[in-house]
Design a protein around this nucleic acid. Structure first.
Lengths: 374, 374
DNA sequence: TTGTATGCGTTATCAT
DNA sequence: ATGATAACGCATACAA
């Protein structure tokens, strides 16, 4: 493709314009009459350089529009200043918030984010994992289905990894949402409102978040009223459509539940649509609650009671954790961290009557959210 | 930090276990008794290698878990097989769909996606742009505010770029949504239903998408009824909250509009909440329509009439365009492409009466969507 | 078909 | 404070 340039003809080369491929450090050196070492020093600021030289170099670099070549630099320093982020095929809002949180911290520390999304099967995830060697300094893996040992087997040796909302495995840092606690609190809340027949719309089977929320729901109800009946759990897949179908199913149950708790807001909204389509008043004839507190939940009619999760913070903390691991090097000790949730009570569960437009939820915090410094 | 290993002690080294830093091509060469060149050849498959040798190499590579080092490879092939994606601080669903579309195509062709999100100001965008040299082979830039010339000034020389929904500038490939056409069609649709007083909730000023939608709205109404009145345009920022505020404002207008067209669905949903909070029936007392057709719009009450945009396809096409540019090299000719939209008529505009749950929209296509091969 | 040697652009280790 | 130069891990032109 590209012809090699003989280095034995420096005179000829000297008269050529800057290479199409981009200016190199050598050209800056030539332009300033300094050595490449000095240019490098100025750039990295590690070693002492005379102020005058410094300015000269900076000026020349700017003029020639030179930016150090990432790959070349990586080859030497053994660091790419890239982090990989592996995400599952996930629904809307979640995804962007996570990335936003990660990227915020990453950029602040001079890192770039390499994403890889929509991993359906495991072997695909593993391929991507392997392809990461020499491209990233660490990875954040969010796969509600992959097991820790599969991860370990496919991760390039010594590549730090942080598990996000996965099944926590030893040998890794991990960070996750208190799915269990949030669902537990919501179940208790609904019980506290007097509901004895509460239906649950579950998330996809095999999904860790989904299972934890289910557990929380069960335990919460059990604590209140004893063993919940199995038929009050309807299957869903975290999508609106599945919530809609679940809503219809629930209306056919007998005795009919008086409240529905969906494992996420998307399904709750789908369910709401089904209930309204059937002429069932929410919350008067049926209370409804979700999980995630996505932005839109404040604007449904009635506004949706939900479990608040700070997704952006989840991403940010994962990134910070990864940076710590990077800094610690071999001496790093793995930790597991759980992010707390809080109940957001709006009108859909019947605990509050519509005040104004019902848009400024009063929050009943189960545990305090760990604040993120900005 | 890391001690250098003297290459003058090969015997000593031979007995050492694999380096902590990762296996290199040399170790595979040593293990197979072949030269590094041969290893490289089987890996890249460009040059002929004896089948037997090939197998031996592959086996050794697998056993040693060797994966070529990205940076090293990039340094002499001049390609990273990474593409950069610059995204603005954008709302939820949009973001994930775009990335999904891009990543789908990228992975299929062996590329990785480097994202950078949440760019508020221009200088930040420019910094990121510059830092991309040697890290990516091309970029997809989505900045509704940056001008083409700022881009050109900060892009590493010769780095192909595709503009996504930006102000189209010459010297770049670009691809965008037919914002104007979609908004025009919606304005005509509302007019066709008999609405003579239609309010518009605008997007953020300076945002290209927003402005185009506004133009389309104006022209569509003008074509129908003559010059629309200025006060029927209310400012918003694409967020739900701003739609809510706009909804309240609109209710104070006199004479009161009979229909509202929001520049995106998030604002339409906020507006819906405001209308319902004020006891105004939708669509009977006020028709409502949005733009984007986000998944949730099918599940609002009433379901929202909107302009459908295939976001995932937008990302996919941008990526394909970039790959074409990469393949063409210097001989590439820039093109501008516009993705068509289609009207999705649901109940919020009053054109249909609630059938069932109102969930299966009949589509009136303005122009055919260009299908993407799968 | 395979091996040898060189260069990719940078940082780091020596000197000076 | 600065310069010369050897790595870094790989791909390729060239020789065999």
């Amino acid at each position: 493709m590209r012809a090699y340039r003989a280095t034995t003809a420096p005179e000829a080369e000297r008269t050529l314009p800057a290479r199409r491929e981009g200016v190199t450090i050598r050209e800056v050196a030539r332009a300033t009459g300094l050595s490449v070492a000095t240019i490098s020093r100025v750039l990295n600021g590690k070693s002492a350089v005379r102020e005058e030289t410094r300015k000269k170099v900076l000026a020349a670099a700017a003029r020639l529009r030179w930016v150090p070549h990432g790959a070349a630099r990586s080859l030497n320093t053994k660091e790419t200043r890239n982090v990989g982020v592996l995400l599952p095929d996930i629904y809307g809002e979640f995804f962007s918030e996570i990335i936003r949180g990660i990227d915020l911290i990453a950029r602040r520390r001079g890192f770039h984010v390499l994403v890889s999304s929509s991993h359906s099967d495991r072997s695909e995830t593993e391929d991507v994992l392997r392809a990461l060697r020499g491209r990233v300094d660490g990875v954040i893996v969010m796969s509600p289905t992959i097991a820790a040992r599969d991860l370990r087997d496919n991760l390039p040796e010594g590549l730090p990894a942080v598990l996000l909302n996965c099944i926590a495995g030893k040998g890794f840092d991990s960070i996750s949402i208190d799915n269990y606690g949030g669902a537990y609190a919501m179940a208790r809340h609904l019980s506290g409102l007097g509901h004895r027949r509460v239906a649950f719309i579950a998330g996809p089977p095999g999904n860790h978040d989904a299972e934890e929320r289910r557990r929380g729901f069960r335990d919460g109800l059990r604590t209140s009223w004893g063993t919940p009946r199995g038929e009050w759990e309807v299957e869903g897949d975290f999508g609106e459509e599945s919530g809609f179908r679940a809503g219809k199913e629930i209306l056919c149950l007998s005795p009919r539940p008086t409240a529905v708790f969906a494992a996420n807001d998307a399904m709750a909204i789908g369910c709401l649509s089904a209930l309204q389509g059937a002429g069932v008043e929410v919350p008067d004839q049926m209370a409804l609650a979700g999980f995630d507190d996505i932005p839109i939940s404040r604007f449904t009619a009635p506004p949706l009671t939900s479990v608040r999760v700070s997704i952006g913070e989840l991403g940010a903390r994962a990134m910070e954790r990864l940076l710590t691991a990077l800094a610690d090097g071999a001496g790093h000790t793995h930790q597991h961290e759980t992010l707390t949730t809080s109940l957001v009570v709006r009108e859909s569960c019947g605990a509050r009557r519509a005040p104004g437009a019902g848009r400024s939820p009063r929050r009943k915090t189960t545990r305090s959210i760990q604040e993120e410094k900005r």
